[in-house]
């Protein structure tokens, strides 16, 4: 039944044009910093030349390397809301804040454990938590207004979205959830009003919008000071049309894991030690990692880490962990609130 193009002429023409012009432009002329992982090999070589290349070491147990130079900033959970949705609706942010306030980092890890380890779905876990906290009893203020809560493509984001949506539903909103890819994909949808709310992370979002609005070279606005970062974020939000709730005490930062076998073999427990011991590392993470300041560029600039190859996987999900365990990547992006990894 499939594909039997009768006329190949136009395709042939297109193919000819394509292949005649392919690969004859300026190297690096494709948009963005790193069109193909190949390009990242050309990254700086300062003193890394004499370091051993640390091959990945397979192993079941994973350990997070200490972010001893503070690459990660405050990443408390905060609801990002399309500014239009709060016009004439004073109650929306209040309900979201109530949910945020009921969480702390340990609770968040517990929720993640229920989903990723105990085999329950985000919506199940969220509904149970809302009931236990009494958040499923709300004043009926929603009047059936439609609210779409967006989520990123990882379990924690899905659970947080279900928490927000569940509380809003209890308050009489017509709330639904929608999982859309990563920040690169869902933020434009949030700005366009396709999504109403997305659970976000203070520091990461601040730098993301900062980068978009003020250019990649702009001075960073996120820091370890929560109040200052939220203030910067609020200012950026005004520029793009977003408002934010109160940040939750719960935090989840990017973290970088290796197998314990790797950590023992090379004797590293911090990212600084890793950068001093190893050249030419293979890093695994979500597709957007080579562009995110708290991912590959941060590792290279703050720690001087020599990333020889980036393998595109998922945001701290099963692909990244399996790639670490099977020795396909040496270092992988995970989340600090991951129930299977959390150390403190």
């Amino acid at each position: 039944m499939r594909r039997r193009p009768r006329s190949l002429a136009p395709v042939g023409l297109l193919a000819t044009v394509l292949l005649v012009t392919a690969a004859c432009g300026e190297p690096g002329s494709a948009d963005g910093a790193a069109p193909a992982p190949a390009e990242t090999t050309t990254s700086d070589d300062d003193g890394a030349g004499d370091l051993q290349a640390c091959a990945p070491v397979a192993g079941d147990a994973l350990v997070v390397l200490d972010d001893d130079q503070g690459l990660q900033t405050v990443d408390n959970i905060i609801p990002a809301v399309n500014a239009g949705a709060t016009d004439g609706d004073d109650a929306l942010l209040g309900i979201l804040d109530e949910v945020s306030a009921s969480l702390d980092t340990d609770i968040l890890i517990g929720l993640n454990r229920a989903v990723d380890v105990e085999r329950r779905t985000s919506s199940e876990v969220a509904a149970e938590f809302l009931a236990a906290e009494g958040l499923d009893q709300q004043d009926q203020v929603g009047e059936g207004r439609a609210v779409v809560v967006g989520a990123g493509n990882f379990s924690e984001s899905a659970t947080l979205a279900e928490l927000y949506a569940g509380a809003l539903r209890a308050a009489g909103y017509d709330a639904s959830t929608q999982t859309i890819g990563n920040r690169e994909t869902y933020l434009p949808a949030l700005l366009a009003g396709e999504l109403t709310v997305v659970p976000e992370y203070v520091g990461t979002l601040t730098e993301f919008i900062n980068d978009q609005e003020n250019g990649a070279d702009a001075e960073s606005l996120a820091s370890s000071d929560l109040d200052a970062t939220v203030e910067a974020l609020t200012g950026l939000g005004e520029q793009v049309g977003l408002v934010f709730g109160t940040p939750s005490p719960a935090q989840d930062q990017n973290a970088f894991a290796v197998t314990t076998a790797f950590a023992e073999e090379y004797g590293v427990s911090t990212l600084t030690e890793l950068a001093e011991t190893c050249g030419e590392l293979v890093l695994g993470g979500p597709p957007e990692c080579p562009e995110r300041p708290f991912c590959q560029p941060g590792l290279e600039e703050v720690y001087g880490l020599d990333v020889a190859e980036f393998v595109s996987l998922d945001p701290g999900g099963p692909l990244t962990k399996a790639a670490l365990q099977q020795g396909e990547v040496a270092l992988g992006l995970v989340f600090s609130s991951d129930a299977a990894l959390a150390t403190e």
């Binding site: 517990g110 365990q325 403190e344």
Partner: peptide, 14 residues
């Protein structure tokens, strides 16, 4: 791959 996390409520994860 599940490491018991010190500092967390010691709930045996079955």
């Amino acid at each position: 791959m599940i490491r018991s996390a010190a500092g967390l409520p010691a709930r045996a994860v079955e």
